[in-house]
Design a protein around this nucleic acid. Structure first.
Lengths: 201, 201
DNA sequence: TGGCTCGCATGACATCTGTCATGGGGAACT
DNA sequence: AGTTCCCCATGACAGATGTCATGCGAGCCA
């Protein structure tokens, strides 16, 4: 019997997935969580065999949870399911030791199969997401460029970005300018959206 | 027996919800669809009692589907479930004749209950979403302001917005300026995000 | 040690944007 | 008929932004 921890902030989805996984004879949902923190806390207590975690949750995102789980409970295999899969997430997830990565568009038997796969030490990444990740390529942004661009996402003026990044406005402008050049965008907002779509920030 | 049509682009979610609804004795999922168009076509054939539709789908969004269903199949009650509920959506949905509006954070028995409620002619709107919609208030934007702001969402420069809206750049700047004033933002990008969050565009 | 890249910063310049004043035409309401 | 609002547009000005040249120090690698 494979013991599963299920984490998803959407109660309906979580309950439904639990119902669905429980239909399988060899799978058992032993715990559920609605937030990242809750998932971590619960996992430490119930020590599941497999953790199925939603990528986007109110507090910690799925990748952070996976990272903590990897060190806390090395015996527990983590897999991530997501609605909107961005290439960067996949890369970060794999780096965090995630063994399975699926979009929610897959069918339920795929989910069950992957649970079994990761439990036996295997890996599974959705082919479509993998292809996307490869075609998106590596981020050409330097770490600081990515930082600054991320702060620019919400449309804040440069001065505020500078404050939040503890940089001078001139430096911020340089980074943004460089990022705009690298993305082929015509201004920082477009660049920020572009980088976001690629999962670079 | 209440006959249900289920539409959601996420296969996993759809299957899981179907499994969950089928656990209820008086509910039966008679059809599923992965896109808005598919949902419409299927509904015309199977004539369900209740249509449970996801708000965001690849082609038509849930509200458009609801609108078509309302004229095509007046006997069919439509309800919408969504991950990211924005006030504007709720308003549009109610105007389109939707009888139920739920976030996916609700529990499964609420879903089943609401299916029964709308089937007997009742209405149900998630209290939290309703409160949000009320507090967000009506859009203060004029139609053209909203148009222009929407085009500004992706971060395009003014000149491109002007071309796409068939306006002069000066006019675009005026609308944006007005919108920025009304939203209390400090630039058009922030204003666009703000308006989007409110469901105004 | 000498390049190399990166982080950080400044200054100058051209362009883009936000703001304001102004005005004409049309629709709606009083 | 007058008032008010919205749509559309122009012009002018200040401030924000994008671009470029330039510089210094730190870390990395051959």
């Amino acid at each position: 019997m494979i013991r599963i921890l299920l984490a998803d902030d959407e109660h309906l989805i979580r309950g439904a997935m639990a119902a669905l996984l429980s239909l399988e004879d060899d799978l058992e949902v032993v715990a559920q969580a609605a937030t990242g923190a809750e998932a971590l806390a619960t996992a430490r207590v119930v020590r599941p065999d497999v953790a199925v975690i939603d990528l986007q949750m109110p507090d910690l995102d799925g990748v952070s949870v996976a990272q903590s789980l990897a060190t806390d409970l090395p015996a527990c295999s983590t897999m991530i399911v997501t609605s909107h899969g961005r290439p960067g997430h996949l890369k970060r997830a794999l780096a965090a030791g995630v063994r399975g990565f699926l979009p929610k568009t897959v069918s339920s038997d795929v989910l069950a199969t992957v649970v079994r796969t990761v439990h036996t030490g295997g890996r599974y990444v959705d082919p479509a997401l993998a292809a996307e990740a490869i075609s998106a390529g590596d981020s050409p942004l330097t770490p600081r460029e990515a930082d600054v661009l991320e702060l620019a996402l919400e449309g804040a003026p440069i001065e505020e970005i500078a404050r939040r990044a503890s940089l001078s406005p001139g430096t911020v402008r340089n980074y943004l300018s460089s990022a705009v050049g690298k993305t082929g965008a015509s201004n920082r907002h477009e660049a920020a959206r572009f980088a976001r779509a690629r999962g670079w920030i």
